[in-house]
Simulated assay, not measured.
Amino acid sequence: MANIQYYDVILKPVVTEKTMELMADKKYTFLVHTEATKTQVKEAVEKMFPGTKVANVNTMNLDGKKKRARGSMTFGKTAKTKKAIVQLTAESAEIEIFQGL
């Protein structure tokens, strides 16, 4: 496994209608590095966002979608991704990047 630093674990937040509803329960969704473990995701969230305390982390591996070039017979796939849903504790601070949404 690659040596992943905490600032390389979280790639970007996932903002959809479903993830916005989960934020009411203090659940936040992020795209993470494909080789990151649950403990690495937990450490990264707690270090990147001060005042947060993670209760648990759920991860899921997503396969790439099949793609075809327009007008030709070449086929391919997009890259595989990994998504993490982070549950914060009740006394934990909110994550600031989601406040203006």
Rank of each mutant, 00 (worst) to 15 (best):
Y28G: 00
M20E: 13
K66R: 10
N56F: 00
V54K: 00
T19D: 10
P50F: 03
T16V: 06
A44H: 12
T16I: 08
F49H: 13
N61D: 02
P50S: 06
E35Q: 15
K65F: 02
K18H: 09
E46N: 08
N56E: 01
T52Q: 11
A55S: 13
N58Y: 03
P50D: 03
T19N: 09
K66S: 10
K38H: 01
K38Y: 00
K27A: 03
M20A: 15
G64P: 02
V45P: 09
A55Y: 12
V41Y: 07
L22Y: 14
M48Y: 08
K67N: 05
M20I: 15
N61L: 01
V45M: 09
E46L: 13
N61I: 03
M60W: 01
K65L: 04
K47M: 13
D25K: 15
G64I: 08
K26N: 11
E17R: 14
M23C: 10
N61T: 02
M20V: 15
D25A: 09
L31T: 13
N58E: 03
V45D: 06
K12N: 15
M48C: 07
T19Q: 09
L62K: 14
T39R: 02
T37Q: 11
A55W: 10
T19G: 06
A44W: 14
K67I: 15
E21C: 09
T16Y: 03
K27G: 01
E17M: 14
N58P: 00
G51K: 06
E46K: 13
G64L: 07
P13C: 12
M60K: 11
K42Y: 02
M48L: 14
L11S: 10
K18F: 04
D63R: 12
G51C: 02
K18D: 04
K47T: 09
K65A: 07
A55V: 09
V57P: 00
V14L: 11
L31W: 08
T59D: 03
K53W: 02
K18Q: 10
V15H: 06
L31F: 15
E17L: 09
L11K: 14
F30H: 07
K27S: 01
E46H: 13
L31H: 07
K65S: 05
V54F: 00
M23W: 04
P13V: 09
A55R: 14
K18W: 05
K27N: 05
V57D: 00
K38T: 00
